[in-house]
Design a binder for these strands. Sequence first.
DNA 1: GGGATTATGGACCTCACAGTCCACAATAGG
DNA 2: CCTATTGTGGACTGTGAGGTCCATAATCCC
Lengths: 208, 208
Amino acid sequence: MDRSVKNDYPGAMARPREFDERRVLRAVREQFWNAGYAATSLQDLMRDSGLGKGSLYAAFGDKHQLFLRALRGYNDANDLALRTMLEAAPRAVDGLRAFVMAPVSDASGVAAQRGCFMANSTYELAAADAEVLTEARRTYEATTAAVAECVVRAQGEGDVSADSDPMGTARALLAAQQGVVFMGRTGMDITTLTATADSLTAQLLPEG
Amino acid sequence: MDRSVKNDYPGAMARPREFDERRVLRAVREQFWNAGYAATSLQDLMRDSGLGKGSLYAAFGDKHQLFLRALRGYNDANDLALRTMLEAAPRAVDGLRAFVMAPVSDASGVAAQRGCFMANSTYELAAADAEVLTEARRTYEATTAAVAECVVRAQGEGDVSADSDPMGTARALLAAQQGVVFMGRTGMDITTLTATADSLTAQLLPEG
DNA sequence: GGGATTATGGACCTCACAGTCCACAATAGG
DNA sequence: CCTATTGTGGACTGTGAGGTCCATAATCCC
């Protein structure tokens, strides 16, 4: 029997789980996000999740699988939030602007310094971990596609030049956003960081 | 006696060193650059440098100190190369463009995927390692200052609007460059990456 | 209620790691 | 040539890591 696979039929279980899977994954994600993969020990994960080693391994497999679960969950949630945000924007170009400014949306600067879980993971692992690299490409392609879709809408609304290539524009906007994320990680103060993001936004998505 | 400090008076040494310090630091830097700090073991460093543990510790101190030595060396060399390149540009704006395009200057894409040693280190360690964070700030402030100086020159040559703030412009250019570096780390093919860098350059430093 | 099944968490194992230490080698100075 | 001093590299150590295992607990089904 493979105990690393989630049981799809809780009714067939003998002893029921004492923990909420989503809660555990959330705690695990926070830990990996804050400290990175290598710097997170199983003890950290046990402390934060409240589970023992046996339970953790039975439910999620080893440390690497658990990490991937947390990372994929983060990306899926992010993707959904992005699409929702872009679609909700009355004018598409405002959605695009919000996309670039997202890293500085927390006025305290804490979120900016912590950065993006996927970007952190890419830097730490993508070169050596094929699964993380695959996940990174999957995620950034999804993001690029969502942004490009919004660029098309903005072109229809006359806010982005009809000459520009939607995918190319989306990639440039994503690169700009990730540049802001990076500057945040160096501990740049949130005021300067916001000004930088504003400057990029103004030049890449000019008004009128 | 502190054996971790380099002897400034080789004439006073009894047994002379059998290795070249710069050679060792170069080998160490490559290893840390390729694999990151945590993923690099002392065995890796011994293999690449050709030194035994005792020699390594006697000459450079522990792993962390050795890492900082390699990182600072990288940054100093980079800073010098940047200033040289910017000053050598006939028109300042071309120097600024080359700055943003630097991450894609290797047509094979290998350099792009490996990224920037300082950026990699910032992502891996800056949140938990105060010395690395300090080094990151020092480096990016130096870079920003050098770029800003070049922006001033470009303004004098009429290639950048006289209205724009040199430091703000420099930060935006640095962020754009780091965005390109990041996209490179996700394994984006060099052609697409170059197009993205070109797009950013064209929008941030328009001609005419 | 009893047998089958799953969950739990800590004891335990193995291993690789960073770092220390020391016997020996190689040079300088006199 | 002899002694003092520094360089060298491998043996060694302690620690904490990830991962396995199992006695026990808790539930379901008959």
